[in-house]
Design a protein around this nucleic acid. Sequence first.
DNA 1: ATTTGAAATGAACAACTGTTCATATACCGT
DNA 2: ACGGTATATGAACAGTTGTTCATTTCAAAT
Lengths: 217, 217
Amino acid sequence: MSEQNVNTALLRGSNTKSKILKTSLKLFSSKGFKATTVRDIAGAMGVKQSALYNHFKNKDEILETLVSELTSSAIVRIFADKDTQELHKEGKTLLMSIATTFKLISFDGQNEALFKLLMQEIYRNERIREIYNEHFYQENVKKLSGLFFSMMQNEMIKSGDPLLLANEFFSPLFFYQMQVSLLKLDKKSTSSVVSMFEKHVDLFWDNIKIEKQSTLF
Amino acid sequence: MSEQNVNTALLRGSNTKSKILKTSLKLFSSKGFKATTVRDIAGAMGVKQSALYNHFKNKDEILETLVSELTSSAIVRIFADKDTQELHKEGKTLLMSIATTFKLISFDGQNEALFKLLMQEIYRNERIREIYNEHFYQENVKKLSGLFFSMMQNEMIKSGDPLLLANEFFSPLFFYQMQVSLLKLDKKSTSSVVSMFEKHVDLFWDNIKIEKQSTLF
DNA sequence: ATTTGAAATGAACAACTGTTCATATACCGT
DNA sequence: ACGGTATATGAACAGTTGTTCATTTCAAAT
């Protein structure tokens, strides 16, 4: 039975490995890396602690693997599909879709956990700080900056410092995302913060757009 | 010798207690609470671990005491001296002084450590989350909101949603403050971020102010 | 000089930590 | 059916953790 081959091949090997990663991410993101014990992880997946050492050299390697996944996660790839294709969309629509991507991250379990892991370990783990800074912050702000520069040249928005605009557009989105993750921790309502993502884009666009009425003359 | 009395009174009792707090804050804010051992704290102040238990019931009580101090720290009291007296200042000047307060926090050792402690433990410590949310976020945003409302009534700025404006003014300041603390960790230059505090106020004010030229007619 | 009380010490504890390793188990290709 | 390989187990380890406590130190008040 080749079908069973495939099944068991998936069940064996990499399956428990990915289960370890999944369980570890859940625990690390809620208790923190240091406070999570190897026994916690094993216990949560109904296995003895020594079993984990068939898949990972040690506890640190589990974290390192999770951190590596961060690079390819949605958190870091806000512009993933967008970027060039949608560049010719109406300006505000593009900004809104970026804001929505931010917003949705908070409501996907995997991404939310990765974000919480990032926030909790960023002050202790130099590698995480590096990924945050280069991939999450710098890269996205640079792309935003380029986007605003194009918009200025196309006379869609007022001219100014594109990098400043990028930072001012980015930072509230980051802040609201953090607020959502904090509110969800205490099971509080997130609705008022969630609406801020769109309000931010509305206000931001109103402030930078070139008024159409002046094209009359 | 009454002079010696005063000296030894200061040396005894509360002095070692405050030294424990100072040392603990330094260690907690750089390694995290869980990763800092009682032996670390005692060792850093040249004393044996058991000595700490004459001043605090346990390790948690040290953290709780530090967290309590948070409520009265500059981090939480952005509006401390400002508020009512300066309300009649020119609008932009007031906003700029608030932004400067934010900026200066990152460059005062004590406040910087408290901010890092806050950021590192906010996902694990419910009390810290509560203080952050009520005193640092809600309270300041509410005050900002009232400020913008007054400015709208005095026709200093365009009318709109004051709470939205407050959030949009607050969130970049918070973000830049976090950026500074992260850059300083890796001993990187903070100059480009530091200049953002002022640029933020400049741009923000330009967007909300009522153009003076229209008062000509 | 003696008493007193607060603060520091040294030693020890029990619990918990990450990790190792010989052994057992289950499943695959042959 | 068999042998091999990957994975799981049980038990143990050495080190670290927070905390306790009887004893000592030492300056202040009597």
